[in-house]
Design a protein around this nucleic acid. Structure first.
Lengths: 352, 352
DNA sequence: CATGTGTATGTTAACGCTAACAGATTTGCC
DNA sequence: GGCAAATCTGTTAGCGTTAACATACACATG
């Protein structure tokens, strides 16, 4: 059984040397052909490509990266893949990186700081060209690693704090304030809050802080609140809404602010099912502007977190700095979250 | 400005040698400590760990992988991240791999065969320990690469066809047949189909084929169908449903079969909004069993694709074969999709 | 005390590729 | 024709780590 162009999945993996022998040129020339680098005559290029194809050679990037100390990976570290927000960020990142040599590699932390630390460590051990990481809150060790890595770091989704290097996102405090103002302007008074358990989600916490801050300025307080843990789920939103409305019957709430669109949508469906007049009897709002809200019977008020744009901007920062390594860095891009009133939040009452 | 434990992000990246010098032992010993391999005395272990920590050393896996020819990565190649099905598969994969040295790396193909081919090529060039790839349909070149890679390959989500190596999934043809049978048993007659444009999605196509096959046996045909491209969206489901019901007014449909739950949910919401009696006047069913159906006003009939389980089983195959490289391979695991009637599909009529 | 058995460390040579330089050959141009 | 520049190809020496082997020393054993 000859080794030549046979289909025998030979034991020893193929190397440049095999291609070089098959095509009668040096390994270096093969390397040049396969990377389109340097001048190679058309004839040898042809020979080499044919040999590589015939053998089924796939270059070994491990060796290549070690030799050239260029690793075209961008580490993307996010809390979760299953809540519709990060896939969109990924879309933005890919849109930009697809036009470069860079390739995203994602790691998921499940909102756990220690997990984030180990994921980061794992990622850095592959010596990526850059890091895109969600949030500004990290363990000390994680911050130290990123500070010392000597590569561009972009913290995304949040700009309320001090980034290690660059940051792209919205101010969640501002988002919370903005929503509170709109709710107050619309004349709502007894406001309930439904959200995730906060220590796990700094951005939700910041929104909450901004939200209560503005309420306080208007002499208002959160009338009731309910927190859950776990992913954002429609059913959870229903349950929580039911529970909250139930226990506030003698002094009914007139607005519910949800920390994400998914539970907000659950709440909306609950209200509609139970003949509650939205937004007359009760107003509702979520957060994120996720696409599927468009299909709901009524469009939930929400605030867009500019997810695709965040991904794009972050990737652009990395790409720019990879291309020009001694560019400054420390860029901070704050996007403005746009309030969408939808059909569940009345417009401003007092135009005065 | 001393280099020692200073915070200066030194130009030259840290290597084992730096740690070795800082702790006064050989590089080899440092390597042993950092990998917990071989015997090292407690005292030197302590010194080394301290030095490594103080310097902020992160091992270089590129070099390590090259030297040991062990790369603990598992390539996971999937069509999309944004439709709720693959994140769940990822969950299953992580559940298993988290207990091993292996780490998943995902690549997204957007349902494009050529893109799959390049993503696969990129992945293989990192010499992963295994590949988990969605579907059984690939370009010839992709199949060749996988066949020659000399690593375990697990094709997931589908078992209607010949896998390259191992496969884990459900039979989509069978899923389609099963759903058709349930619909026929319930007494529905004029059935509409709403789905994705098929060439892009082989599994949806196979379900459709199984579906029509059983209809044919019962002397039935699809009465109308509508296809769209793009992600699965609630709003799309609404639109399509409206259009389809509209144009079949003189001879109304009594069942709509959707190729995924998201458009199915859109259709359900449309029907409810328009006071259509579900499942009396019209029955509905989707596919996938995604979690958020639980929060809808009425539960959509669906068929579970066992996504988490598929991920787990696939990861287990890889893990097993990495641990024991000369295990046989070629395993095929066919899971049974379970039909969930929900509230939108009547139970069997004729108990005879 | 010679011998064996650990335990703890160090040395050497890859792993597969590419940067940097060095030849060899051709081409252009006065 | 001669010399520089351009084009093509090859050689050498790593990249940072680990496998495999070699060494050194301690301790037990009969």
């Amino acid at each position: 059984m000859s080794q030549g162009s046979g289909k025998t999945p030979s034991k020893r993996p193929l190397t440049l040397r095999d291609v070089s022998e098959a095509s009668g040129v040096s390994e270096m020339t093969v390397s040049r052909v396969l990377r389109n680098r340097g001048d190679v005559s058309e004839s040898t290029r042809g020979k080499v490509l044919e040999a590589a194809r015939a053998l089924g050679y796939v270059p070994n990037k491990i060796a290549g990266a070690l030799a050239s100390s260029r690793v075209n990976l961008v580490a993307v570290i996010i809390p979760s893949m299953s809540n519709m927000v990060f896939p969109e960020v990924m879309t933005g990142i890919s849109q930009i990186l697809d036009d470069t040599e860079l390739q995203p590699v994602v790691g998921v932390t499940n909102y756990k700081p220690e997990r984030e630390e180990t994921v980061l460590y794992q990622m850095l051990s592959w010596r990526p060209s850059g890091v895109i990481i969600a949030g500004l809150e990290h363990t000390e060790a994680a911050k130290a690693m990123m500070g010392a890595a000597g590569i561009p770091i972009v913290e995304i989704m949040d700009t309320d704090g001090e980034p290690i290097d660059s940051a792209v996102g919205i101010s969640h405090r501002r988002a919370g304030r903005k929503m509170a103002q709109a709710i107050i302007d619309a004349g709502y008074k007894r406001i309930g809050f439904l959200g995730t358990k906060m220590p796990l989600d700094h951005r939700a916490r910041k929104r909450f802080e901004g939200f209560t801050e503005i309420l306080a300025k208007a002499g208002l307080e959160i009338a009731d609140s309910e927190f859950y843990s776990g992913g954002s789920a429609l059913a959870k939103g229903r349950e929580m809404t039911e529970a909250m409305l139930q226990r506030n019957q003698e002094e009914p709430l007139d607005f519910l602010y949800y920390s994400n669109d998914m539970i907000g949508a659950g709440g909306l469906l609950y209200c509609l099912d139970n003949g509650i007049d939205v937004p007359g009897e009760i107003g509702l709002a979520g957060f994120n502007g996720i696409e599927f809200l468009d299909g709901l019977p009524r469009k939930l008020a929400t605030m867009d977190a500019c997810r695709v744009e965040v991904g794009r901007a972050a990737a652009e920062i990395i790409a720019k700095r990879v291309e020009n390594p001694d560019a400054p860095g420390g860029e901070i891009i704050t996007l403005e979250p746009s309030l969408e009133f939808g059909d569940t939040l009345k417009r401003k009452k007092k135009p005065l």
